[in-house]
């Protein structure tokens, strides 16, 4: 166990040292979450002027949605980009011939994804409070559970993306940035699930984030904890992680058979 933790720490240390030497990477982590928060903050400020009675609710729902969706996005990107950093630095060969197990690699990527997400999202959360008076944590401790459910979903998607990179090499790189954006309409970030056409509601029901955002709206507009949606979110996260974890494992072994680990940067 001690050896395993040390190997995970070795991988994290390698990336922390990279960020220590590369301030543009650190800046990039914060850039998009803050930009998104600013744009949506102005939108809510505008809506507040048009519809004064619903201003605070709109601000809460929109800004809460933006900030929480960034948790999922940054967790997914953090995981996949940390893996890509090893490809870009042509270091993956050394990593794969070290005693680092695939499970430890995944644990290290999850740790780095968490640190990257917190570095990117927490300044945006603080700015939302400073600029627009919106406190994400006014929802109460449940916001921590929302964070956790969205992080788990981000990691699950990232396992799928990394599996694609193992299979298709650097050609699958753009998925690291784009894949979760494709789920945005079904994640019901800015509108209730009931807004979607009936057929698409079934799709949304299978996405953990859709349940998190239903729960967030219940917390912000009604001040209640919707335990059904919370349980659904974590249950679906577990299923997604198990399925995509197996896809990753199978793809890793397939890459060892096909020789893709030797040519992954191409």
């Amino acid at each position: 166990m001690k050896g395993s933790l040390r190997r995970v720490w070795g991988l994290c240390y390698r990336h922390l040292a990279l960020y220590r030497h590369s301030w543009p990477r650190l800046l990039e982590l914060m850039y998009w979450p803050i930009l998104q928060m600013l744009v949506w903050g102005f939108v809510t400020a505008y809506l507040a002027g048009v519809q004064q009675n619903t201003a605070s609710v709109a601000a809460g729902v929109l800004l809460g949605g933006v900030l929480l969706w960034e948790v999922a996005l940054r967790s997914q990107m953090g995981f996949a980009i940390t893996f890509l950093e090893e490809i870009w630095s042509r270091n993956l060969g050394h990593i794969f011939v070290s005693p680092l197990r695939p499970g430890e690699l995944v644990a290290g990527l999850m740790c780095m994804a968490t640190l990257r997400m917190l570095t990117g999202v927490l300044p945006a959360v603080a700015l939302a409070w400073a600029l627009y008076g919106f406190g994400l944590f006014r929802m109460g401790p449940v916001v921590v559970l929302f964070f956790a459910a969205l992080m788990l979903m981000g990691w699950a998607v990232a396992l799928g993306v990394t599996a694609m990179i193992l299979r298709h090499g650097a050609g699958a790189e753009p998925l690291a940035w784009s894949v979760l954006f494709g789920l945005t309409p079904f994640a019901c970030v800015f509108y209730p699930l009931s807004t979607l056409p009936t057929g698409l509601q079934w799709v949304a029901q299978a996405i953990p984030a859709a349940h998190v955002f239903e729960g967030m709206r219940a917390a912000l507009t009604e001040g209640r904890l919707d335990s059904f949606h919370l349980l659904m979110a974590f249950g679906l996260d577990l299923i997604w992680l198990l399925v995509l974890g197996r896809v990753f494992g199978a793809q890793f072994e397939a890459a060892r058979r096909s020789g893709a680990l030797l040519t992954i940067g191409e």
């Binding site: 070795g10 390698r14 270091n91 005693p99």
Partner: peptide
């Protein structure tokens, strides 16, 4: 990794090899 110092690189592998 090119951006890491020599010592940092060796430290990474010292951890990975426990």
């Amino acid at each position: 990794p090119h951006r890491l110092s020599v010592a940092e690189n060796l430290r990474v592998y010292a951890h990975l090899y426990d």
